[in-house]
Amino acid sequence: MSTLTAAPTQARVAQSSGRGLSRRRKDTIAALVFLSPQLVGLAAFMVGPLVFALVLAFSDWDGFGAATFAGFGNFADVLSNPRIQRSVLNTVWFTALQVPGLMISSFVFAVLMQKAGKMTSVYRLCFVAPVVTSSVAVAAIWLWLFNPDISPLSSALRSIGIQSPDWLQDPNFVIPAFAIVAIWQGLGYQLVMFMAGLQSIGSSFLEAAELDGCSGWQKLVHVTIPLLSPTILFLSITSIIGSFQIFDYIYVFMDSNAPEAARTIVYEIVQIAFREFNFGQASALAFLLLLSLLGITALQLAVQKRWVHYAE
């Protein structure tokens, strides 16, 4: 009898009237059945916790006893705490090092690998292997590579006359050290994305540019990069969100005793919530993190019209 899909609602209601449930109601019930597991998940593990976090952010509570209303106290405490301010600066500094480093290097490698022919999959194996490895294993390896006494990296630098810093202990080098690990681990992901993007650029554009006498460099700047701009936008949004949440490496490198120079926003959230059991302050800081991520993403989406081209 009736069709599942796009027939006008009125016709279907008319068709099925007089046979118990209306078509529309049946559809709603079917939708609910199919959606139910994810709806339960959405309510119990996302919306519920979000509302709860909002309540926590405005309360004083250590997990025991009664919570008291704190107004904007937690937010004021968080914003005026110099240790947290430092962690914000550290996070921004990490992002400023990691995101451009990651995007530029993976883009360059993707362009080069396009021309690598049969060897592509061999090279790609090496670049993508860190992506499938857990951040804990990655950090454990780099713990060795950053140790100036036993690191082959320091030894190699020394042999060409460079004294390598004590990466994880030196306050000036600890954030760059995190960025190095993050770039090493994240490179393969962006490489795969850029290679997919390059693949989707029709060769006709590049051939047309070639016929017009464009050099390789001109093709890259005037054809490839504009056509890849949606990929660039996507990766810049997701990688900034990701780098603002850096935590795993720091925790493996330093456990819960990271010095101020090495603490990031998420590290602070975890310490405040699960060491100091100040759930209110931790939630307030986490909300501020969400708000800044929303702000940054909105900004990127607002300026995208000026530089992102959608080829149709």
């Binding site: 996302m46 916790p49 976090a53 949440q245 935590f247």
Partner: peptide
Amino acid sequence: RIEFRGSKPLFMVFLATMMVPAQLTIIPL
């Protein structure tokens, strides 16, 4: 595939949650 009232806004809710950092919900969780 199923038309039901609130389908679009509900889907937007799903999309929006992708922005929420895990650290925000982990405390209440």
